[in-house]
Amino acid sequence: MKTLRIQKSITGTTLGINMQNVQHRYDQSSTAAVLSIPHWQVKQGDRVFLHGDSGSGKTTLLNLLSGILTPTEGTIELLEQPFSTLSARRRDAFRARHIGVVFQQFNLVPYLSVLKNIQLANYFAAKRDKHIEETANTLLAKLNLPANVLHKPANTLSVGQQQRVVIARALINQPELLLVDEPTSALDASARDAFMDILLNMCENAGASLVFVSHDMSLQRFFSTSIDMHSLCQGKVNASC
């Protein structure tokens, strides 16, 4: 496995996520690991549904995958490039360019307009898209958001609308890896299905991997792979998912 290193192509059978002997402890002195994943690989382009009880380490896993936290032991490779061993600065840059994040909390900068929020993601990824407004508009339309929200401050939108803006923002840089946590909790059933469709569509078109965390087991049907946190931690999930 370790021989698979930096390859430019991220299509085909390359690995999107590769975790080896990962352990994480918040408190260095404690012996019990909050999270322990012996071995987990996700092929680039795969869509994974992760479910588990509260406290099963889902959030910690997402923090590790986004590079906000680093594992106490073991290594994480993303897109076949070293990730957890990168310097903090380069991890931040990697996240900006290659990872889209949709979380329940901390989603938008409240006083910025929707467009500014989306532009911000583009700015930190150092991808200066000249047609950002059009791209954003297209995305918002696909997410069933009216075009006039683009210039409204984010905090004037309803929670459901805000959540969809977050998704538009996560997709704007066409990331290779999308980390999504309980995004549909604020959406009604039809909006939820429409949202899942576009999310999966976009992932497919971009060849992006998707790690989707939710309590809602009814969403499982959208995914080819479904993993229980419990079995992931016990190393029961093997090789290619």
Binding site: D92, A93, R97, A125
Partner: peptide
Amino acid sequence: VLRTLGAG
């Protein structure tokens, strides 16, 4: 939020 967008 800025952190998740990649701001160091």
